[in-house]
Simulated assay, not measured.
Amino acid sequence: MKRTRQRDRDVPGPGTPWDEIVPGLWMGGHFWTDPAGELQPAVVDDEFDVVVSLFTRPGHGPAPGTEHLVAEIPDRPLTADQIEAVQGLARATVDAVRGGRTTLVRCHSGYNRSGLVVAQALILLGGDAEGVIRLIRRKRSPWALHNATFRAYLTTGLDVARLLNGLQG
């Protein structure tokens, strides 16, 4: 399996498997930390109509029949193609939420990669980057979107970030 997660052991794990950011749009991970401080798997069954995964692990769902969109991206600077994948997943997330479908966007812990897609979806729905980041941190965790590069992508705009990264390659 390709390594997609950066080491951030000084960041506490989330206290829930997933949290609702706005009605119908949830953000979470494959792992969460229980009240005793133990790492627990977050396994999705059929709680959601759509699951968007930026990190995958066998046995973590979703249930057969659930729409599952997957694009494994790293928790570090992205290539132009990876940013384009994020944009596509954000558009699909917007379409699902507008269609009244409960949607979970998840990564390893539900902080950075899922935060990037959820934030971009909320920007497409009319939010501004700074306000969206604050909302995600309030609803999911103060540690959400602690990846400074991802915050810069959002405040710069993913179109510009993709274009600039494409010039480097």
Rank of each mutant, 00 (worst) to 15 (best):
R137K: 08
I83A: 03
I83Y: 01
P64C: 01
T66Q: 14
G28H: 04
G24P: 13
A90F: 00
P77I: 01
L39C: 07
L125R: 06
R113Q: 06
W26P: 02
T16K: 11
G29N: 04
D46A: 15
D128H: 14
R98Y: 03
L116G: 01
G59E: 10
R151W: 00
D19A: 13
R7G: 00
L89C: 13
T4E: 05
P14V: 03
R113F: 07
I133E: 04
K139L: 01
L125C: 10
T93Y: 08
D128N: 14
E20D: 09
W26H: 11
P14Y: 00
G28W: 05
G59F: 02
S109R: 14
M1W: 08
R138F: 07
P17E: 10
D19R: 08
F55S: 05
N165M: 11
V117C: 06
R106D: 07
S53M: 08
L135I: 01
S53Q: 05
H68V: 04
E20Q: 14
Q40G: 01
R101W: 13
G169Q: 13
A42F: 12
L154D: 02
V132G: 07
G61S: 08
H30C: 15
V52N: 12
W18P: 00
A42C: 10
T4R: 10
V51E: 15
V118H: 01
P17V: 05
H30Q: 15
E20P: 08
V105I: 08
A36V: 07
E47I: 03
P41L: 06
L78V: 04
P77C: 03
R5T: 10
R76T: 09
Q82G: 09
L54I: 07
A148Y: 08
A96Q: 13
A63C: 14
A36N: 14
R98H: 12
M27E: 15
V51C: 13
T156G: 15
G13P: 08
I136K: 00
L78M: 12
D10I: 07
R137Q: 13
G24C: 09
L163N: 11
G131T: 10
M27P: 04
P62E: 08
A144G: 11
H60E: 12
A71Y: 02
R134S: 13
A144Y: 04
L89S: 06
H68T: 05
V97R: 07
A85E: 15
A42K: 04
R106Q: 15
P35C: 03
G61R: 03
M1Q: 12
V50T: 14
T4S: 09
P12A: 13
L104S: 02
L167Y: 10
A85K: 11
S109D: 09
E72I: 04
D159A: 12
D81S: 12
G115C: 04
R91C: 01
M1A: 13
L122N: 05
D75Q: 04
G99C: 11
T93F: 06
T79V: 03
E20T: 03
P74T: 00
Q87S: 12
D49N: 14
S141A: 10
Q168R: 15
R3C: 01
E72S: 06
V43L: 02
N165K: 09
P14T: 13
L124D: 15
M27S: 14
Q168H: 11
P64R: 11
Y153Q: 02
H60R: 10
A161K: 04
